[in-house]
Design a protein around this nucleic acid. Sequence first.
DNA 1: GCCGTTTTCGGCCCGACTGTTTTCAGTCG
Length: 561
Amino acid sequence: MATLLELKGANPFKVRAYQNAARSLMTHDDDLELALEKGQLTKIKGVGPGIAKDIQDFFHTGEMLELKTLRESFPSTLFELLEVPGLGPKKVKKLFDELQIESLGELEYACHENRLVKLDGFGSKTQEKILKGIALLKQRRNTFLYPEAFEQAHVLLQQMSKWKEIKQIEIAGSLRRRKETIHDIDLVCSADQENAEVVMRRFVNLVSPNDVISHGTTKSSISYRGIQVDLRVVKESEYIFALHHFTGSKEHNTLLRGLAKKQGYILNEYGLFKGESLVKCQTEANIYEQLKLDYIPPELREGLSEIEMSKDHQLPNIITLEDIRGIFHVHTNYSDGKNTLEEMVRAASERGYTYIGISDHSQSAFYAHGLKEKDIDAQFIEIDRVQKQFPKIRIFKGIESDILSDGNLDYPKHVLKRFDFVIGSVHSRFKMSQEEMTKRCVRALENPFCTILGHPTGRLLLARDGFQIDVQRILDVAKKEGKIVELNANPHRLDLDWRILYTNRNDCPYISINPDAHDVEGLSHVTMGVSMARKGGLTKDHVFNTKTTKEIETYFARQRA
DNA sequence: GCCGTTTTCGGCCCGACTGTTTTCAGTCG
């Protein structure tokens, strides 16, 4: 509704009202259907009589009259135009009304025909920028996995922190919030006022003029090895406010500024002001404190329900990397891992872990040299040997067993019962219907020998969507069966998605943050997994591998009894 | 369209940059 109304040129506050209501509904934890039946929809923040009526209509008829009318007044392909950088609703509407442009293809053609320059408010620069934007969209090169973006950001940070004009510099934006994928790198720095322009000049000179996206006196953007980097420079006294501002998210900031305003403050990237006077804040925590809020860590600043929770002192005490005591889901060269069992155990021990769960692939995973029964015998003997060598770290014997398409695990009972734990994972037949796939995984969860459900949706970030599966059902069954669900920490997977964890944080089964390491370096995936758990609002108590070795042993023993 | 410890009417987050304009609208974050 909001997008369509915006295109229509409706009252911008009406547009925002719909956006607010949508966000509010997305994070609404209670039963919507119940609220609807009781006629209590308007009790939800942002939902008034108008939108309550919309929701009712939608629930009963599957449609909303105004939405239907609006939708019919625009071709569905029009929305892709909004993806083009520099194009917003006003310009898209103009293109549609005056040039009858309905799709990206038509827009590109019109640019080549030089037809945009004649439009009011457009010019040759706009046309050029749009063409560039379309090319970028086509390449899909504007999204990166966290580690790729992080590495680039660090290279820049190293380099720029040596510039004598810069006093402080930090990574802000989605990188600081630890989003799983990153569109651009945001850097914030402080400098003496007379040096600001020098910093900007040095920054844009890092790349060729062609790769300078914008160049101002305090804010510039460049395209650095294919990724957009924004740099903002402020005075030293403004730095903490700027860092907060550019950490975002946009949604979080919007809500926070609204709250500040209600309390008689103005909040922007330069400070927190009461009238003309600046409120002194040394840290980000001080800013929240002034607004009568508990400190909200960057990972939680997504504009979901964190501000409300913080106001009520209900923020979860989210897990930290130090809470992790051990790790499961580790591969060795018995299947498709690179390092030996001993090397993996040594590395885990050196990282201070007190237990490690080895889980190579099972026999039907021939692509990964899955273990036959005799390989299991051999590995068990070796584990016992290595265990003697490293008495301080407990080695659990496990397996990552394929969940076959009928939901069975791919060893017979007498084999499965030999393991301390079994991770059941789907590695084949991804294209089942949601119903079939859900049934398949439920069956696995109900198998008494299955301990952990591995990478529950099978997604590969930026490469492959997860398979169709009713995640809610899976979580419910896992909880009921006392099973553990994996948060696969491989940066390509990060599966389950943190948003699912966030919505289910008050009622979910144990989550195990598993590196799915295929070599020694892969053990460090845990860091990323913890970041996702933090975004999901999980506490130490939610996470299985924060337990002590003793607790783990007891848990496994009870399961196998 | 929603909301209210300034308000049931009059507001609704804030500022930088760009490109098109001669004073500002649109977009972005």
